[in-house]
Amino acid sequence: MKPNLEFGRILNSEELQELGAILSQCFNMPASVCQKYSQRLGQDSFRYVRQGNQIVAGLGIYQMGQWFGGKQLAMAGLAAVGVAPEYRGTGIVFELLTQTLRELYNQGVPISVLYPATQRPYRKVGYEQGGTFCNFKLPTNSIKLAISEEAVKEIRSLPMQRVSLIRPEAFYDIYRQQAIKNNGNLERNQAIWERVIEPEPNREIYAYLVGNEAQPEGYIIFKQQNENQLSQVVISDWVALTPAAAKRLWVFLGDHRSIAQEVLWHGSLNDPFVSLLAEQTYKIVSGDRWLLRVINVPKALAQRGYPVGVEAELHLEVNDELLPENHGKFVLRVSNGQGEVTQGGSGELKLNVRGLASLYTGLFTPDQLLVTGQIEGSDRALATASLLFAGSHPWMRDFF
């Protein structure tokens, strides 16, 4: 760390207010919104860089989990990374991120994720593209399933019950049953759940369980709004654990055609829900890629899940200029879906920590990373890595 800079944890309301003024300006947020955000995340979750007596930059940390290969890993989600405008371009953000990652390594956190406003400063400290976040739009009057009218009548017999959001615990287990099967999905903490269920001022949010209340098969949480003279159903979260629940949710949304012209939601680039529609009338109106940083290489590789039935050994050589503990050769042995990591080996598959991030999540295959120069190795090593890191497309429904 530069000698004139100090890195630390926010300790009192005065420091939080000082950092909040910077973040409000950076993200064009009213002070009241920034205050509410900091209350939700918690004072202990913020870090700062100070020059002299002045806080000049800071960020927030979401402590939560993320699913890969059917296993949950502890994950630090970085958010609200802001630098006072008069200090931009001075290397402050590099110092802030470097010290934060060092702290997270010392705490034993294996991975970190963030949504970048710009990728360059995060790539400098080892983050790389890890998965997708997509916004979908669909005309309500086009919602039709590729099934008969009789089958639609049968689907309607699956009950949907409106429920209160006062106790969101009703959704936790249903959500987790879906998340465990999707690479990149969050193990949400309370702050993320509050974002999902919190209504906007003067706008109600609705929630329904699908199926038997004692053993629900899914749910939907949404609001209704008018935007650009269009009436919209905006889904903040939805889960279907069975084919019947997925079809019931589409029928339910189609039944809004008389009061809403569009349905909007966040989903995967390869969203399986849309395959049930009779026609491809949906659009991906925008997409983003979140970045992942492998903070502790042995721990991240050992704690991730792998395809059951694959018995393999992969020798890696990782280059990490920021965290020297990750720099070197490692052997990953996989059996019965479990990974075990030891130091050493031949280093047959060579990559830097950024290339490892995209391989780790499964966003890109080893062959794709080979073409972009982010990985090199023998045909055998590339084939082994392809087997081990195969899985569902990594994505997130949550933005933070």
Rank of each mutant, 00 (worst) to 15 (best):
R102S: 10
G347F: 15
L264E: 10
V93A: 03
T118F: 04
P298M: 14
C34L: 05
I235V: 15
P243F: 15
F252C: 13
L387H: 12
T90C: 14
I192K: 01
P201G: 01
F364H: 12
W67V: 05
G391V: 11
G42L: 08
Y360S: 09
Y48D: 00
E204G: 04
I235N: 06
F222I: 03
Q229S: 08
Q338G: 05
K247Y: 07
L230W: 11
F222V: 01
T118E: 13
V285N: 06
Q99E: 13
I92A: 03
P121E: 12
Y172H: 10
S38K: 13
S258D: 10
G362L: 10
Y360T: 07
C34I: 01
R167P: 01
G345L: 12
F133K: 06
L230D: 01
H266C: 07
Q99P: 02
H266V: 14
V163A: 06
V353W: 09
Q35T: 13
K350Y: 08
G328S: 11
C26G: 03
I166F: 11
H256M: 14
S378W: 08
R380C: 07
D320L: 14
S236I: 06
L359I: 10
I111R: 06
P394L: 13
S38P: 04
R120P: 00
S386H: 15
G345Y: 14
T98A: 09
N352V: 07
Y175W: 14
I147C: 02
V234E: 00
Y115Q: 03
L16Q: 10
L349S: 10
L241S: 07
G347T: 13
Y122T: 12
L41M: 14
Q225Y: 05
L241R: 01
L388W: 10
Q232M: 06
S258V: 11
Q280W: 00
N141F: 01
G337S: 12
G184D: 10
G130D: 01
Q66H: 00
S392P: 06
R50L: 00
V274Y: 06
E187H: 13
I259V: 09
C134Y: 02
A244S: 14
V125R: 04
Q17D: 12
D379R: 15
I22Q: 00
P168L: 00
L41P: 00
N326L: 11
K223W: 02
L301H: 14
L209H: 00
Q178F: 05
G65H: 05
R257L: 09
A302L: 06
A146K: 11
